[in-house]
C-alpha cells in the first residue's frame, strides 16, 4: 500500500509542477507570441494591401471597440494622413476553422482597396484558391464599402471561385462584415489613423 501512495503522490506533484511551470512560461511569452503572429501571419497580407505606406502599419495599429469586442485596425499612412486602413474579419467557409480575411478600405473614396485571406482551412486546390489565386481577390477591389458584397450568383459583382461557392460566399460575408464595421466606426477610425500619422516613431 505504501508503494501505491508514493506513486500517486510523486505523479501528482510532478504533474502539478509541470503545469505551474508551463503556465509561467506561457504568461511570460504570450504577449510576444501575439506580436510575432501579427508580423508573420497577418504581416505579409497587410504590407501587400497597404503597399506604399510610409509608416509600418503594424506598429501604427490601434484598437476600435464595438460592443465588448476590440478590433485591430492597421492604418496605411502617407505623409500626415491615412490613404487606407486594413482590418481583419471572419466568415464561415467550408473548412472547420473560421475564414480570416484582411480587408483594406480606401479612406478617401470608401471603396475596397483590396482583400487577402489570412487564415483558412479550406480544401486545397478548391477553396484554398481564395488565398492563392490573385484574380479572385482582384474581383473585390473597387467595390463600394457602403453596400453588402455578394457573388454574382447571389446578385452581386464578385466572380465566385468555380467549385468553391461556399468559400466564396464566406469571403464575401467576411468582407461585408469588415465594411459594415468600417462604416459604423468611420469617424473614429479616420481620427485615430490621423492621430497615428502625427505621433510615434516613423
Amino acid at each position: 500500500m505504501r508503494e501505491l501512495y508514493r506513486m500517486v503522490i510523486v505523479m501528482t506533484l510532478l504533474s502539478a509542477l509541470s503545469g505551474g511551470l508551463l503556465a509561467g512560461v506561457r504568461m511570460a511569452t504570450s504577449a510576444r507570441i501575439e506580436e510575432q503572429k501579427l508580423e508573420f501571419v497577418k504581416g505579409p497580407a497587410i504590407k501587400r494591401l497597404l503597399a506604399g505606406a510610409q509608416k509600418d502599419p503594424i506598429a501604427a495599429r490601434f484598437a476600435v471597440k464595438d460592443g465588448g469586442a476590440e478590433t485591430l485596425v492597421f492604418p496605411g499612412l502617407k505623409g500626415s494622413k491615412p490613404f487606407a486602413v486594413a482590418l481583419e474579419s471572419f466568415g464561415k467557409g467550408y473548412g472547420k476553422t473560421p475564414l480570416g480575411v484582411m480587408v483594406a478600405i480606401n479612406t478617401d473614396s470608401d471603396a475596397i482597396a483590396g482583400i487577402a485571406v489570412t487564415t483558412h482551412s479550406e480544401t486545397p486546390g478548391l477553396g484554398a484558391r481564395a488565398q492563392s489565386d490573385p484574380s479572385f481577390a482582384k474581383g473585390f477591389a473597387g467595390l463600394s464599402a457602403k453596400e453588402p458584397v455578394h457573388v454574382k450568383a447571389d446578385g452581386g459583382k464578385v466572380d465566385a471561385l468555380s467549385g468553391a461557392s461556399i468559400t466564396s460566399r464566406g469571403v464575401c460575408a467576411a468582407v461585408t462584415r469588415a465594411c459594415e464595421f468600417y462604416e459604423k466606426h468611420r469617424d473614429e477610425i479616420v481620427k485615430k489613423a490621423a492621430a497615428a500619422a502625427s505621433s510615434g516613431k516613423p
Partner: peptide, 14 residues
Amino acid sequence: VTIVELVMQAYAYP
C-alpha cells in the same frame, strides 16, 4: 517540449 514550443513561437516564429 512545450517550453521549447512556446519560446520558439516567441523568438523564432519563422
